[in-house]
Simulated scan of single mutants.
Amino acid sequence: MGVMMSQFGVTGRVPRVLYVDSDPLSRRLAECYCLASGWALMTAATGAEAVSLAGEATYSAIACNAVLDDMTGLELGQAIRDRAFANRRTPLFVVTSSAELVNKVQAERIGVREVLEHPISLTRFQDTVRRLNSRTPALVA
Protein backbone atom coordinates (compact mmCIF):
# COMPACT_ATOMS: atom_id res chain seq x y z
CA MET A 1 0.00 0.00 0.00
CA GLY A 2 1.33 3.41 -0.89
CA VAL A 3 0.45 6.82 0.47
CA MET A 4 1.17 10.05 -1.32
CA MET A 5 -0.29 13.36 -0.24
CA SER A 6 0.04 16.77 -1.86
CA GLN A 7 -2.09 19.90 -2.09
CA PHE A 8 -2.94 22.56 -4.65
CA GLY A 9 -5.23 25.56 -4.97
CA VAL A 10 -6.02 28.31 -2.54
CA THR A 11 -8.32 26.21 -0.37
CA GLY A 12 -5.76 23.51 0.35
CA ARG A 13 -8.35 20.85 -0.52
CA VAL A 14 -7.52 18.20 -3.08
CA PRO A 15 -9.19 15.20 -4.64
CA ARG A 16 -8.32 11.90 -2.98
CA VAL A 17 -8.09 8.87 -5.28
CA LEU A 18 -8.06 5.17 -4.41
CA TYR A 19 -6.34 3.15 -7.13
CA VAL A 20 -6.55 -0.65 -7.03
CA ASP A 21 -4.43 -2.90 -9.21
CA SER A 22 -2.43 -6.06 -8.57
CA ASP A 23 0.27 -4.82 -10.95
CA PRO A 24 2.85 -2.71 -9.08
CA LEU A 25 3.80 -0.85 -12.27
CA SER A 26 0.20 0.26 -12.79
CA ARG A 27 0.02 1.45 -9.19
CA ARG A 28 3.28 3.35 -9.66
CA LEU A 29 1.93 4.98 -12.82
CA ALA A 30 -1.18 6.10 -10.91
CA GLU A 31 1.12 7.54 -8.22
CA CYS A 32 3.01 9.51 -10.87
CA TYR A 33 -0.25 10.75 -12.39
CA CYS A 34 -1.62 11.87 -9.03
CA LEU A 35 1.66 13.50 -8.06
CA ALA A 36 1.68 15.41 -11.37
CA SER A 37 -1.91 16.46 -10.68
CA GLY A 38 -1.37 17.45 -7.05
CA TRP A 39 -3.86 14.87 -5.76
CA ALA A 40 -3.83 12.60 -2.74
CA LEU A 41 -3.57 8.89 -3.54
CA MET A 42 -3.99 5.60 -1.75
CA THR A 43 -3.18 2.39 -3.56
CA ALA A 44 -4.17 -1.21 -2.93
CA ALA A 45 -2.94 -4.42 -4.53
CA THR A 46 -6.03 -6.50 -3.72
CA GLY A 47 -9.76 -6.06 -3.53
CA ALA A 48 -9.79 -6.94 0.17
CA GLU A 49 -7.22 -4.25 0.90
CA ALA A 50 -9.25 -1.75 -1.13
CA VAL A 51 -12.47 -2.52 0.74
CA SER A 52 -10.61 -1.95 4.00
CA LEU A 53 -9.20 1.39 2.78
CA ALA A 54 -12.61 2.43 1.48
CA GLY A 55 -13.96 1.86 4.97
CA GLU A 56 -11.33 4.14 6.51
CA ALA A 57 -11.48 7.29 4.34
CA THR A 58 -13.66 9.09 1.83
CA TYR A 59 -12.45 9.29 -1.77
CA SER A 60 -13.23 11.56 -4.70
CA ALA A 61 -12.86 8.66 -7.12
CA ILE A 62 -12.02 4.97 -6.97
CA ALA A 63 -10.27 3.32 -9.91
CA CYS A 64 -9.66 -0.40 -10.18
CA ASN A 65 -8.44 -2.92 -12.65
CA ALA A 66 -11.14 -5.17 -14.09
CA VAL A 67 -9.26 -8.25 -12.87
CA LEU A 68 -7.59 -8.38 -9.46
CA ASP A 69 -5.92 -11.33 -7.77
CA ASP A 70 -8.77 -11.92 -5.33
CA MET A 71 -11.87 -10.60 -7.16
CA THR A 72 -13.01 -8.74 -10.25
CA GLY A 73 -13.24 -4.98 -10.38
CA LEU A 74 -17.03 -5.23 -10.47
CA GLU A 75 -17.03 -7.46 -7.38
CA LEU A 76 -14.86 -4.86 -5.69
CA GLY A 77 -17.29 -2.11 -6.67
CA GLN A 78 -20.17 -4.09 -5.22
CA ALA A 79 -18.23 -4.82 -2.02
CA ILE A 80 -17.48 -1.12 -1.58
CA ARG A 81 -21.14 -0.25 -2.17
CA ASP A 82 -22.21 -2.91 0.36
CA ARG A 83 -19.62 -2.32 3.11
CA ALA A 84 -17.80 1.01 2.81
CA PHE A 85 -20.55 3.39 3.83
CA ALA A 86 -18.55 6.59 3.34
CA ASN A 87 -17.90 5.60 -0.28
CA ARG A 88 -21.28 4.21 -1.29
CA ARG A 89 -21.73 7.08 -3.75
CA THR A 90 -18.09 7.62 -4.67
CA PRO A 91 -17.61 7.50 -8.44
CA LEU A 92 -15.95 4.32 -9.67
CA PHE A 93 -14.06 3.71 -12.85
CA VAL A 94 -12.63 0.48 -14.16
CA VAL A 95 -9.36 0.12 -16.04
CA THR A 96 -9.00 -2.85 -18.37
CA SER A 97 -7.03 -4.19 -21.29
CA SER A 98 -10.33 -4.71 -23.14
CA ALA A 99 -13.59 -2.90 -22.42
CA GLU A 100 -15.43 -5.84 -23.95
CA LEU A 101 -14.51 -7.90 -20.86
CA VAL A 102 -16.59 -5.65 -18.59
CA ASN A 103 -20.28 -6.47 -18.19
CA LYS A 104 -21.80 -3.04 -18.88
CA VAL A 105 -25.18 -3.81 -17.29
CA GLN A 106 -23.62 -5.02 -14.05
CA ALA A 107 -21.17 -2.11 -14.11
CA GLU A 108 -23.98 0.43 -14.39
CA ARG A 109 -25.96 -1.28 -11.64
CA ILE A 110 -23.13 -0.82 -9.12
CA GLY A 111 -22.32 2.71 -10.27
CA VAL A 112 -19.27 2.32 -12.49
CA ARG A 113 -19.18 5.63 -14.35
CA GLU A 114 -16.36 4.94 -16.82
CA VAL A 115 -14.47 2.04 -18.33
CA LEU A 116 -11.01 3.01 -19.56
CA GLU A 117 -8.75 0.85 -21.69
CA HIS A 118 -4.99 0.55 -21.18
CA PRO A 119 -2.83 2.39 -21.91
CA ILE A 120 -4.19 5.44 -20.11
CA SER A 121 -2.50 8.77 -20.71
CA LEU A 122 -1.97 11.34 -17.98
CA THR A 123 -4.51 13.62 -19.65
CA ARG A 124 -7.17 10.89 -19.83
CA PHE A 125 -6.60 9.94 -16.18
CA GLN A 126 -6.80 13.58 -15.07
CA ASP A 127 -9.89 14.31 -17.17
CA THR A 128 -11.69 11.25 -15.81
CA VAL A 129 -10.95 12.02 -12.15
CA ARG A 130 -11.83 15.70 -12.60
CA ARG A 131 -15.09 14.93 -14.39
CA LEU A 132 -16.14 12.34 -11.82
CA ASN A 133 -15.07 14.56 -8.94
CA SER A 134 -17.06 17.51 -10.30
CA ARG A 135 -20.22 15.35 -10.30
CA THR A 136 -19.75 13.98 -6.78
CA PRO A 137 -17.22 16.00 -4.78
CA ALA A 138 -15.55 14.23 -1.89
CA LEU A 139 -12.62 16.43 -0.94
CA VAL A 140 -10.14 16.19 1.88
CA ALA A 141 -8.73 19.00 3.97
Rank of each mutant, 00 (worst) to 15 (best):
A54K: 08
R28P: 00
F8L: 10
I110H: 10
S60V: 09
E100N: 09
A30W: 03
S60Q: 08
E49A: 14
D69K: 02
Q126E: 14
S121N: 05
E75Q: 14
T123E: 09
A30F: 06
E31S: 06
P91H: 07
A79Q: 12
Y33S: 03
A138S: 15
I110N: 07
F93G: 12
R113Q: 13
F85Y: 15
Q78Y: 06
P24E: 08
L92Y: 10
S22R: 09
I120A: 01
S98C: 04
V102L: 01
L132M: 08
M1Y: 08
A86G: 10
D82C: 01
L76P: 00
T11S: 13
V129S: 08
M71V: 09
A63H: 08
C64T: 12
E31K: 05
E56F: 03
A48Q: 13
D21A: 06
R130V: 10
L25F: 12
E49D: 15
G38Q: 12
S6P: 01
P15G: 15
G38S: 08
D127C: 01
F93W: 15
S26R: 03
R28K: 11
D82P: 05
F8P: 00
V105E: 07
Q126M: 15
L35F: 12
N133M: 04
L29S: 03
I62D: 14
A45W: 01
Q106M: 12
D127K: 01
D23F: 11
V51G: 10
L29D: 03
F93S: 13
V3C: 06
Q78G: 07
N103F: 08
R13Q: 13
Q7T: 06
R89E: 14
V112A: 07
T90A: 13
L101W: 00
V140L: 11
S134Q: 15
S60H: 05
R88Q: 14
D23G: 03
Q106D: 04
G9V: 14
A66H: 15
R135C: 09
A141T: 09
V94T: 02
V67K: 02
V51N: 11
Q126W: 12
V20F: 10
T123N: 01
T72V: 04
E108P: 00
R13A: 06
A48K: 14
R124D: 15
V20S: 10
L132E: 08
C32W: 08
C64I: 04
A66L: 06
R131L: 13
S121Q: 05
A50F: 09
D70R: 02
A36I: 00
T11K: 13
F8K: 12
R27I: 06
C34T: 14
V94M: 02
G77R: 10
E114V: 12
E31T: 11
R83H: 15
V95N: 00
V51W: 09
E117R: 04
T96M: 06
D69M: 00
V129Q: 11
R124L: 15
S22N: 11
L29I: 13
T123K: 11
A50I: 08
T72H: 06
G12Q: 10
R131G: 07
F125N: 10
V129G: 11
N87G: 02
I62L: 15
L92S: 09
E108D: 12
W39F: 01
E108F: 02
M4W: 09
S134T: 12
